[in-house]
């Protein structure tokens, strides 16, 4: 069965870039969200088994979203994709339960490597 993948980023260009960076022939059902609120909604609808989450977003940012996912023990494996590459940001998202942190711009090689490492591919 296809894995549901959610791409959450306020930038349409970034969402598209992320979708293009997913491995070829990966059996997935892709959904999109523009902010954390939309992401939580999508996760509730079962559309986010794997979530690629940006950090800097209006309405509800990535850190708030991760906190909500962790506190409510939601069924979502989150990989943070961000331009904020400060070590502190990486440590914080890992602490909040994110599987990994990918630096933008994302490449197909990088996303493949991370997904393989967590047995998602």
């Amino acid at each position: 069965m296809a894995i549901s993948v959610l791409i959450c980023d306020d930038s349409g260009f970034a969402r598209k870039q992320m979708a293009r960076a997913l491995p070829d022939n990966w059996d997935v059902e892709i959904s999109f969200a523009c902010n954390g609120e939309e992401a939580l909604q999508a996760i509730a609808e079962g559309k986010g088994e794997v979530v690629f989450l940006d950090l800097t977003m209006p309405v509800m940012d990535g850190i708030q979203t991760l906190t909500h996912i962790k506190e409510n023990d939601l069924n979502a494996m989150v990989i943070v994709v961000s331009g904020d590459i400060q070590p502190e940001a990486q440590a914080q998202v890992t602490q909040l339960g994110a599987l990994d942190f990918i630096q933008k711009p994302v490449s197909k090689a990088k996303s493949t490597e991370v997904l393989k490492r967590f047995g998602l591919l």
Partner: peptide, 10 residues
């Protein structure tokens, strides 16, 4: 905006 976002992060 996204390009600037990545650059300013670096």
């Amino acid at each position: 905006q996204e390009i600037a976002n990545i650059a300013m992060g670096q």
